[in-house]
Write a protein that binds this DNA or RNA. Sequence first.
DNA 1: CCTAACGTTCGCTTGTATTCGAACAATAGA
DNA 2: TCTATTGTTCGAATACAAGCGAACGTTAGG
Lengths: 116, 116
Amino acid sequence: MKELHHPAIENVALEHMFQALSDPVRTEIVNRLATMTEATCTMLNAGRPKSSMSHHYRVLRDSGLIRTRIKGTMHINTLRRAELDLRFPGLLDAVLGAIGVNAGKEAEDEAKGGGA
Amino acid sequence: MKELHHPAIENVALEHMFQALSDPVRTEIVNRLATMTEATCTMLNAGRPKSSMSHHYRVLRDSGLIRTRIKGTMHINTLRRAELDLRFPGLLDAVLGAIGVNAGKEAEDEAKGGGA
DNA sequence: CCTAACGTTCGCTTGTATTCGAACAATAGA
DNA sequence: TCTATTGTTCGAATACAAGCGAACGTTAGG
């Protein structure tokens, strides 16, 4: 079993978290994980090549935002909610809320023809 | 009077904000502004060359996090707290709290010799 | 053992950020 | 007007991140 690396919660750096969240592909992953609680990589690959997505999972893992556990041939991803809430109280909830707001706005923009 | 550009609050994108916050120099600026309410650029330049710092102010401005108003020869920076709280309720407070936690941790690490 | 499925890792290209000196613009004061 | 001060802008070097095909490793099933 090939273990993947996850930083200890005390070593999670705020800057790395923000960096991880600065890419729309990754905020979308985080957003989905927030509602689905867990998901395999293929469930989250939106038609994109897997090498690209694997890169994003790694960034999210290294930043401390998600945890990936291996079951059979597939990798199951979850948000590290409880741990993160201990480390940075209230932050993840606020971020998830904002991602939701942002996602809503993007949908609006698209409806107005701004996203096409 | 040379006006600087600030995005309208509706056009502030979450990803840009996170990107702006992904650099320790900038989180420090934000952290200081959170306690000082306002500060000129020289007050925030920690011995670094001003062209570098000016770049960071610009990133923070473009991301929507700070506002710079010009008074005489100096530029006075403030956080766009109220506006941001309307756009992403609770986010900025959580971020400021986290930056504080992070800053505290870094001070600890340094005391332990990890930061040298 | 052989093959298919799931993701990671490698190597490369392209694009974007950071850094900093030097030149510039705007204001204040002598 | 001349000079000092405050910050921005330009330009170039360097470093970092995204994207993707191809090769690889691991597990499941035949």
